[in-house]
Amino acid sequence: MKSFTYERAGSPQEAAAAAERTQGAKFIAGGTNLLDLMKLEIETPAHLIDVNGLSLDKIEATDDGGLRIGALVRNTDLAADQRVRRDYGVLSRALLAGASGQLRNRATTAGNLLQRTRCPYFYDTNQPCNKRQPGSGCSAIGGFNRGLAILGASDACIATHPSDMAVAMRALDATIETVRANGEARQIPIADFYRAPGDTPHLENVLMPGELITAAVLPKPVGGVQAYRKVRDRSSYAFALISVAAIVQKDGSGRVALGGVAHKPWRVEAAEGALPRGAKAAAEPLLAGAKTSKENAFKRPLVERTLAAVLTQARS
């Protein structure tokens, strides 16, 4: 691990100001992803700003009937919150499908949104990777890419976003709140939060340098049957091959977001219009433009079948 200096921030704005003025600074909260990457020298911050002392660890009701989830709320606490379990079951289920008990006790809401990909070539510092080292090439294209993206990828990168939580938040239309060094606050709909990889896969979201996530806000509950189905190589403690977050209403309408298929949670408006006609009808627009390799072509039928299973579960 490269050496770094360390400070504890006193307020969100102070943290953002420190990050903006210090070359190579990064925030650290749970650290469960960042320290893993620092040990491999994939992340090499010169300065760490510890944000754990900021009072961003509460889940509060909003004026319009939703929930404001502080950036530092731990994954376990969010999944176990009675309001989340009752009104946003898809979120609770997605969180519980991710990582291990130890990691969920430490990992935070904001950190979960900002997880880096688990593409094996991003992790292997001996291999070219445009995300880790811009311009070096992509080893995953034509390589071992069974777990990688089939939608929204580019010739520069086919990495997937590894979060389960973000997929549920996409289905719930969450908004991400941030603060910058000058005190300016922003609300970013999660639909606009992640960037397409394009030619710049190292830029993963729309946050500005030094900008700090302070909360994720859920709109008022939409009801329906909520489910998160994650398909993986073992029954626990593994990243998704694909996942389906769904909210299905009595009349068959609803929302669907996919995980494990793209650089961000994947949601398509036209697919939701087709949802009352069943999984096959919805999967077609959901997977429109999919580009598969020999290794990950299985993801296409797997999405349709998993969606069918979720819809059956929702209607039973």
């Binding site: 360390y6 650290i28 749970g30 650290g31 469960t32 320290l35 893993d36 760490l48 510890d50 754990n52 376990t76 008990g101 130890q102 990691l103 006790n105 430490r106």
Partner: peptide, 12 residues
């Protein structure tokens, strides 16, 4: 609360 002590810094 149980955690992985390898993925957190002592100074935190």
């Amino acid at each position: 609360h149980r955690i992985n002590s390898c993925l957190t810094l002592a100074v935190m």
